[in-house]
Computed example of a mutant assay.
Amino acid sequence: MDYEEMNYQSLSSRQREWDSSLAFPALMRKVYVWMTLALVITALSAYGVATNPVMSALIYSNPIVMWLLVGAELLLVIGLGAGINKMSLMTATTLFVVYSILNGVMLSSIFFIYSLGSISTVFMITAATFGAMSLYGYVTQKDLSSWGKVLMMALIGLIIATIVNIFVASPGLTLIASYAGVLIFVGLTAYDTQRIKQMFLTAPDAGEHMQKYALLGALTLYLDFVNLFLYLLRIFGKRD
């Protein structure tokens, strides 16, 4: 290997390191920007449906429409997760926006249950809690990977308890599940943030391929935020 070849490889290596160092903050920024935009879209969609009597009647007077919305949301989440590598960034972004709108339509029911002031207060509490835990997951030197299995098992237990409570309608179980849900999604916020950070620390660039993974990261944190908000709303929300 001659001097010129060695020099070229050295320059290439430094260039890759430079590209990687630039990619990390760009990708993390995209995660939070996309997550924030999705939350805004969801909030506007929810409020828009709640204040439109025609839309509200169409959705809530027909169980079939509700089941179609639930099915569409599930298909979108599964499709994004499983098919992200086969999609263009534009297609993935469009599906993410559509999911945010559909989720807003589904969440419009909270405006018929809780006062607007209560919803606003709980949203601010959620934002502060989410921000603190996401910051912790970002800056901590502690390896949070061990949290993953525990939190996923707890989440499965929470889902089972929620399904059971549909039939038994126990206020006590509802309250316990709400507190458990808060703890689970507080933990998941920190865990998912660290996992996303670690993935992008070694990103070779901020090209379309990695941006699609940033979109998936935004979806993950978006779901953590929304679920944390809903469980906090069940605890602190004031009903109309």
Rank of each mutant, 00 (worst) to 15 (best):
1 M>K: 10
6 M>W: 00
15 Q>E: 14
18 W>P: 00
18 W>Y: 08
20 S>F: 15
22 L>W: 09
23 A>N: 05
24 F>G: 00
24 F>L: 03
26 A>P: 00
26 A>M: 09
28 M>K: 07
34 W>N: 14
37 L>E: 10
42 T>C: 11
43 A>L: 07
43 A>Y: 04
43 A>N: 04
44 L>P: 00
47 Y>K: 03
48 G>F: 06
57 A>K: 08
57 A>P: 01
58 L>W: 08
59 I>P: 04
60 Y>I: 00
61 S>A: 04
62 N>E: 06
64 I>H: 09
68 L>R: 01
68 L>S: 08
69 L>M: 09
71 G>H: 10
77 V>Q: 02
80 L>Y: 13
81 G>K: 03
82 A>Q: 13
83 G>F: 10
83 G>H: 11
84 I>D: 08
84 I>N: 10
85 N>T: 12
85 N>K: 07
86 K>H: 11
87 M>T: 11
90 M>H: 06
94 T>E: 02
98 V>K: 08
103 N>K: 11
104 G>N: 09
105 V>S: 08
107 L>M: 14
108 S>H: 12
111 F>A: 00
112 F>Q: 03
113 I>W: 06
113 I>Y: 06
113 I>K: 00
114 Y>S: 00
115 S>T: 14
118 S>K: 13
127 A>M: 07
129 T>S: 15
133 M>D: 11
134 S>V: 15
135 L>W: 02
136 Y>H: 09
136 Y>T: 06
137 G>N: 05
138 Y>F: 15
142 K>L: 02
143 D>H: 05
145 S>Q: 10
146 S>H: 10
152 M>E: 03
154 A>H: 02
156 I>R: 08
156 I>F: 14
160 I>Q: 10
161 A>P: 07
163 I>F: 12
164 V>F: 14
167 F>W: 14
168 V>N: 02
170 S>H: 12
178 S>A: 15
181 G>N: 06
182 V>Y: 02
184 I>V: 12
184 I>T: 01
187 G>M: 01
189 T>E: 02
190 A>G: 06
191 Y>E: 03
194 Q>R: 10
195 R>A: 06
195 R>W: 03
199 M>T: 09
199 M>S: 09
200 F>R: 04
201 L>P: 04
201 L>W: 05
201 L>N: 10
202 T>L: 15
202 T>K: 14
202 T>M: 13
204 P>E: 13
206 A>W: 15
208 E>L: 15
209 H>R: 07
213 Y>K: 11
214 A>N: 03
214 A>I: 08
217 G>M: 11
218 A>E: 09
225 F>E: 15
227 N>I: 08
228 L>W: 08
230 L>V: 12
230 L>M: 11
232 L>A: 06
236 F>Y: 14
237 G>S: 05
237 G>T: 07
